[in-house]
Nucleic acid binder design. Structure first.
Lengths: 225, 225
DNA sequence: CTCTCGATTAAACAGTTGTTTAATACGACT
DNA sequence: AGTCGTATTAAACAACTGTTTAATCGAGAG
């Protein structure tokens, strides 16, 4: 029998999307076996129990995590503004559009929200390189050296704007009028806004810091009285 | 009998932390009743079913959270910059707490990540008023009228920066060096950065939009060749 | 006292869960 | 043919779920 269509493999492939969608506890072995068109006992026969099936599924997800949206290779002359825009567009494409998110990413995201020890490796191999790449773009956008804290915070501000459209997608949908919902999740609109917002912030940050110190003083005076 | 110690109230208070920790499906009525030291049938007697107990718990969480960190009342002369800073600080205080997450916050975050029936009411009575308040501050910060889409996107950019430190707290902790972790979650540092970043962005957004149009053209030309 | 009625209780219920069992089917080998 | 070992099956299992039931309690009213 072809290995790809073996009972064990069918279970593994069917389990992935279901675990990704519903989580470990909410996914049922009956649902998985139905989807895989195998007998109910197959999971225990091949994997021992549900838990070990889940672990094998996570491992498979890691292995199969194909670089579906690879980073473009930029020439030396590419403007940092262009780089940032493409970076933001890439982030949004990877995480925002729920429908097209492959189940492998969904499963890993699930692990990330509730970090375990296995998550550490994921951070090092997946998130940190992405983040470092972003920070290098930020460096190009400013004309002065930044402290480690500053550039990290700027990075989180940009990432935060992107991820918000995934984590809070449900609430955002409820908050905007249904008629224009598509507009708010439109990839190009989002990319343009987040890019422009962030560039505007980075460019203007230097001037603001000084002014803000004054504002803080005003705020303090108001609190006093 | 004291109202606070009534059976119904004991159930409500016991349910909050359990729902927050385990989610709706994973929390069991027996566990809640045990914690509240009441009979198993009490939930159905007082609340009808588990679901309605959950909804009442979410409502309670929202009320208690808003009570603990109320909005300041601003005078007419208060600078919008000050307002934004206090808004951001309030958001962060309500949402971002490093070590121990109060169960009220945990429950609200659960609703954002995976909205249930309780969420619609939560949006209308809690999130939307907060968001509208933010948008009015944004209006004061710009000197020109914004489209609905623009001001909403700006609002999401600010909220997204704040919430990122809750949803991605685990990953952020893993990404920054442990020695300086406290620094990255320091309330004042965060408040200052997000406020300054957002003000800088809003102030500069107008100029950037024009420049970005040119950049887009450059990007297109680069893609062509 | 008795009566009443909401509050509380233990028990039972019906449904679902993951897992196990025992029987059977199937193919490879002698 | 018969034998062996693996794969697959339907059924049963025990534990747990939310909910319902019917009995009991307990305090206030007549």
């Amino acid at each position: 029998m072809n290995r790809d269509e073996s009972t064990k493999n069918r279970v593994l492939l069917a389990a992935g999307p279901i675990f990704a969608r519903k989580g470990f506890a909410q996914a049922t072995v009956r649902e998985i076996c139905d989807a895989a068109n195998v007998n109910l006992a197959s999971i225990n026969y091949y994997f021992g129990d549900k838990q070990r099936l889940y672990i094998e599924t996570v491992i498979l997800a890691r292995e199969q995590r194909a670089e579906q949206f690879p980073f473009p290779s930029w020439s030396d002359e590419t403007l940092p503004e262009v780089k940032l825009k493409e970076f933001v567009g890439l982030m949004l494409r990877r995480v925002v559009v729920m429908q097209t998110v492959p189940w492998q990413v969904g499963l890993l995201m699930r692990e990330i929200l509730k970090p375990t020890e296995a998550c550490q490796q994921l951070v090092e191999e997946y998130f940190r390189p992405i983040f470092e790449r972003l920070l290098r773009i930020v460096d190009e956008l400013v004309d002065r050296p930044l402290t480690t804290l500053q550039r990290t915070q700027i990075g989180f501000s940009i990432i935060g704007q992107c991820l918000h459209y995934r984590f809070s997608a449900g609430v955002i949908s409820m908050m905007v009028e249904e008629k224009r919902r598509q507009e708010y999740f439109d990839l190009e609109n989002l990319t343009n806004h987040i890019t422009e917002f962030s560039i505007a912030a980075i460019r203007n940050l230097h001037d603001i810091e000084a002014a803000q110190a004054e504002t803080t003083a005003v705020s303090a005076r108001e609190t006093d009285k």
